[in-house]
């Protein structure tokens, strides 16, 4: 299953296109995600940056409209740390959402508990509810979240429900220097042999 093909007909022509109903439905779903923002912590600031005009990270993907009732939304954004005390609330919200529904873990805390490694915090929302896409970062860059949203769209299009993690665009700890050297040798940035 892939993208719907765009077919342009000249005024003199006539014709029709065929597709599978599933593909059509998934195409419609992936471009009209209604979000339920479950924002609990500092990642919320980055979430605001993401949705505001500079990055425009949700409207471009048809995922702008928030619904503050779980019954009307199909994408649960878990943005921030989930404490043990909040866990029942999160689970109830998830259970109230209509199928089909997806979950995006925004940031390291939602994905794994982060450094809150103690009595207070749930070590990742997948301990309680299924999670489709994990976006690592503390907080993640808006670009990383956009990567996550596009990853989710791919998953919806293909009907894949296995959890996926957004890969860093580059890992600063590994290969950063190599990349810099490569960029310099190719002449994209200053400071090296051209």
């Amino acid at each position: 299953m892939g993208e719907l093909k765009q077919v342009t007909l000249e005024p003199s022509e006539s014709g029709f296109a065929t597709t599978k109903l599933d593909s059509l439905l998934n195409w419609a779903r992936k471009w009209s995600l209604f979000k339920y923002p479950f924002v609990t912590a500092c990642c919320g600031m980055e979430f605001m940056a993401l949705t505001s005009p500079r990055f425009d990270g949700t409207a471009r993907f048809g995922a702008e409209a928030p619904r503050f009732s779980p019954r009307q939304s199909d994408l649960l954004w878990v943005v921030g740390t989930i404490s043990q005390r909040q866990a029942p609330v999160l689970k109830r919200i998830y259970e109230q959402m209509m199928e089909p529904k997806w979950v995006l873990g925004f940031g390291t805390c939602a994905s794994s508990g982060g450094f809150y490694d103690n009595y207070t915090t749930v070590a990742g929302i997948d301990k309680i509810i299924p999670c489709d896409v994990y976006v690592p970062g503390c907080p993640p860059r808006p670009e990383a979240v956009i990567d996550g949203l596009m990853l989710l769209q791919d998953k919806i299009a293909t009907g894949d429900r296995t959890p996926r993690i957004v890969k860093p665009r580059f890992d600063p700890a590994q290969g950063h220097q190599e990349q810099l050297v490569q960029l310099r040798t190719k002449g994209f940035i200053d400071g090296g042999a051209k």
Binding site: A87, T108, S111, G124, D126, K127, I128, I165
Partner: peptide
């Protein structure tokens, strides 16, 4: 925990974290 944690049987997928977690 106030809510019982999911088991791998319930989840149907391995709950082990992948990199970078």
């Amino acid at each position: 925990p106030l809510v019982a944690y999911r088991t791998e049987e319930e989840a149907g997928v391995p709950l082990d974290k992948q990199a970078p977690f």
